[in-house]
Amino acid sequence: MTHAPSEAFVNTLRGRRADLNERFERARHQYPQLEGDDVIIFLRDCVDGLAVAVQRVDSTAVMALVSSAYDAALALCGQKLVGRNGRFPIIEEGWKHVLTAAAPLVAREPARVIGAVSNALHTLAVTPAARPVEWITALARLAPRCPDAESFLRVGQVLAWRSGLAHLRASALAVAELLPPELAAAAVCGRDGDNWQAIRTRLSHDIWFDPAATNERVRGPRVVRETGTFRGLGGLFLLPPQIAAAEGGWLVRSAEQHWYLTVDAFGATFHRAAAEEWDTANLQPRLPDGATLTGSTLQQGPFTLPLPVAGPVTSVAASGFTLAVTSAHTHTLTFIALN
C-alpha cells in the first residue's frame, strides 16, 4: 500500500518543478533507460521519509536535500540499480534506514552523505559474500552517535570491512584510529564497553580475531573459513582451485584463471590476478615450527585436526599462522588458524 507524500516534500518538488524536469531530461540523454515512474516511486519510497526526518532537524535544509537526493535518484534509476527492475534493492533499504538515521548529518552535507552512502551500498552489493544488511543495521545504529559527517563516513568504512570487505582491513583499521575510541570500539565489536586499545592491539596481529565472538579462546588449530564455489553454483571456479601464499594475501588458480584473495575473520574477497603472479609465487609452503601435515591430517604440538577436504590435497600454502588447503574433489578453499 502506498502512502501519500509529505507536505514538505511535495512543496519542495512543486517549487522547483521546472528545474527538476530539466534535470530529468538531461539525465535521460545520459541514461536512455531512465524511466519516470521509477524515479517517482524511488522519491516516494526513499526520499519522502528522509525529507521529513531532515525537516525535523532543520527545515531550511529540505530544499538542498531534495535537490541532492533527486540527482542521486536519477543516477541510480538511470543505471537500473534501483527501481522496479533495479538490480540492487538493497540500495533502497540503505536509503530508508541509514540516511534517515543520519538525518542531522544529511541536513548538513546532503550531496556528500547521500553520494557516499549510495556508493558504499553499491560496493557492498556487487561484492560477492559481502553483507550489506549487516552494514545497514550497524550504521543505522551508530549514525546518531556520530558528531559530524566525517566521523559518520569513517564509521561506515570500518563497518564495511566488518561486513565482509576483507581487502579493506588495513586501511579500515587506520581509519578507526581517527575515531573517538568508544565509537571505534562500538563499530568493530558491535557492542559498547570494550577497550579499544586492547582490541586494536589484537586485531593488528591476529587476522582471525573477531571481537564480537563469544568463544574465541579455542586451543589448537581450527578451521576458520571456507570459501569458494563452483561457477555453476554462482561461484568463480570452473575446476577445483589451487592456492599459494602472496604478499598480504593469497593467490588462487582455477582453469588457467587467477585471483588474489584477501581473507580474515570478517570475510573473503577475490580480485583478478595475472598468470605471471602465480608463476612467480612460492608453491612450496613452509609450515610454522611444530606443525606437520600428513595426508589430510594436521598435527600441531599435541593437537590433531582432520582437515575437511574431499579427495587428495592438491595444494597447501602457509602465511603467518594461517594454513590454506585445497583438495581434488571440492571447489572450496579451507583456511586453518594455527595455534
Binding site: A72, A75, E109, A111, N119, T123
Partner: peptide, 13 residues
C-alpha cells in the same frame, strides 16, 4: 574506494 561508485558524491571523499 568504498565511497566511489555510480553516484556523484559531491566531493565527499
Amino acid at each position: 574506494d568504498l565511497y566511489r561508485g555510480p553516484v556523484s558524491a559531491g566531493g565527499a571523499t
